[in-house]
Nucleic acid binder design. Structure first.
Lengths: 345, 345
DNA sequence: CTGTTAGCGCTTTCAA
DNA sequence: TTGAAAGCGCTAACAG
């Protein structure tokens, strides 16, 4: 079955023109006679010629390959992110080396190295946990555009797209206040992480802004998991001055909190306000009435990809850090019609 | 920042050897003196040389690029599938062009064409709905190994890895029989599809094999959706000789069936046997007690990737259709310890 | 064991 | 408008 691979010379020969004419046709150059173009086109189809982009890349020393490296495709948030990037990259006529690192920084290093060897034009990276600036420095210094997405790598001056946890948390709290809640808790998350800090500060700031209690006892940290959510909500229910609503660190915690509330015969979203942070896909399934603060991962992906393509096309664009924050949205689905409030960062 | 890209000649020069010696070192050839190798290695690191795999591919006219094209990365089943492929492909020293087609056959055609131009060594495809044998024929005829996964394309003689619906359904039914059920229904799915037919026949064969009733009224088809599941289970509950258990066409139907049972104050998995087909991720979340028949998508992906690599390494291996069916597993989670029965295809 | 010499398939001046 | 020739970075004979 192996076709004796047909090249430009074969096409040229069969069409009775020279290599370079064929090359021009392939590039859609307007310097070539219409009749010739048609003939060449016909021959190409007839011979089943396939363009060898590798050879072209070699000659031009540039490619239309972009790397997309994601920490965990198994997580639907990051899968959506990847799909978003994929869409704009494909539509722009680029092709992607896409790889999953499973949160393994070593693996990440390997795939990025491999992509470099293949001459990628740029990289969008959702870094694996534990990625350091040093890991990425050589790549960045080589002048290949890099855009970080979803997570930042401290100390690295490259463009990035991350969500604004402070604004999102504040928006969520304001929403709960509008609904009439006066005592609101913050549940879940390890309190020694940057993300926790950011969201928790948004929570507190909004409370203070409204003149409400924002004392430390309202912040109940726990593992950022479903079990952690159960634990946190139980501690909260045991408080003497029990809150009437809570903002949860993430989807898993929100889910756990709902579990805990139900065990206590409290219907989440009805008898008690719960807002889950992040993409609350799983939790939404189980608790359709849940209000959520979420970032649209696909949109985030698209935005990151656009940013990268812009840099690639700008030639050597010595990236001044250009950090873009993504809007967070409070989605409410308690009522019949979905109300959506968009809040700028 | 643009490094004046260093090539083998630069390295050779700096190390005081010739191009080919450097090339040999790069390929880990044993024909080169240990001292030389070390010196060259040092220079490579020092100069920050990066191997140009594109040039090598051009010269050798072969590559270590495999295409992975998936119909819907947003669906966790296919995301897992992709991750499985990714793992084995990466570990084998290959790199993947991975793309999402969003069930769009045209897009699929474009990305595959693009991958061909880039000289991919082989393709693993989870085809978009509506993919025809004709779409893939040119690629297959060109001699590039192709492996189909998760879905088959009728009329195309290539290797594929799909799940065995007949065996899976039969296993599920036998499981219900073991639990003491004697009247079992099959719920959901459009009865004019091949998948439906396969699963339904497995259902019926197992029933007949056990000498139980397998009459047509026990098969209640409906849309393969959550709503369809509700509808089907309602029709079933209205039967005079009401079944005590059901096998559902897929996860969505199982989910809907549980909804319907609950509305009728019947606790699924406790008062009524329900088995969901497919990956029952969502339904499992909502009904932890649900027993499921499922194929391990990651395993399926790994298997497909192995199959492809085997073909690639076999040189031109004129693929006789070599269809591998993946085992389906009945997973039970009613009891505390998870019991897993594996059934061969 | 190392150097020389041709290309892989394509693009790109530079002439015709 | 088209053709001839040079070369992108690498590998693969074949000599030395």
């Amino acid at each position: 079955m192996k076709q004796p691979k047909v090249t430009v010379v074969d096409v040229a020969h069969a069409a009775g023109v020279s290599k370079s004419t064929v090359s021009l046709v392939l590039q859609g150059s307007s310097l070539v006679n219409e009749a010739t173009r048609a003939r060449v086109g016909a021959v190409i189809r007839e011979l089943g010629y396939v363009y060898n982009r590798g050879a072209a890349n070699l000659r031009q020393s540039k490619s239309k390959i972009v790397g997309i490296v994601v920490n965990d495709l198994t997580n639907s948030f990051f899968a959506e992110l990847a799909v978003g990037m994929d869409m704009v990259v494909q539509s722009a006529g680029y092709i992607q080396f896409m790889a999953n690192t499973s949160e393994n920084a070593d693996r990440q290093g390997e795939v990025i190295a491999s992509m470099r060897e293949h001459g990628m034009a740029g990289l969008i990276l959702s870094p694996a946990r534990g990625t350091t600036a040093a890991d990425l420095r050589p790549l960045v210094d080589s002048g290949i555009p890099v855009v970080l997405v979803a997570r930042n790598v401290p100390g690295l001056k490259v463009s990035s797209v991350v969500s604004d946890g402070h604004a999102g948390a504040a928006a969520a709290v304001r929403h709960l206040i509008e609904l009439g809640h006066r005592r609101i808790a913050f549940l879940g998350g390890f309190n020694d992480t940057a993300v926790f800090d950011e969201r928790m500060r948004g929570f507190r700031d909004a409370l203070l802004e409204a003149g409400l209690d924002a004392s430390d006892e309202l912040v109940i940290s726990s593992a950022p998991s479903r079990a952690g959510g159960v634990a946190a909500v139980e501690r909260m229910l045991a408080m003497r001055d029990r809150p009437t609503a809570a903002l949860c660190f993430n989807d898993a915690v929100a889910f756990g909190a709902c579990d805990g509330l139900r065990s206590a015969r409290i219907e989440p979203g009805v008898d008690f306000g719960v807002i889950g942070f992040d993409d609350v896909i799983e939790a939404k399934t189980a608790v359709p009435a849940l209000t959520t603060v979420s970032v649209d991962p696909q949109g985030m992906g698209r935005r990151a990809a656009q940013l990268l393509l812009k840099q690639i096309n700008a030639g050597d664009f010595d990236a001044e850090a250009m950090v873009a924050a993504v809007r967070l949205v409070v989605r409410e689905s308690c009522g019949a019609p979905q109300r959506v409030r968009e809040l700028t960062a």
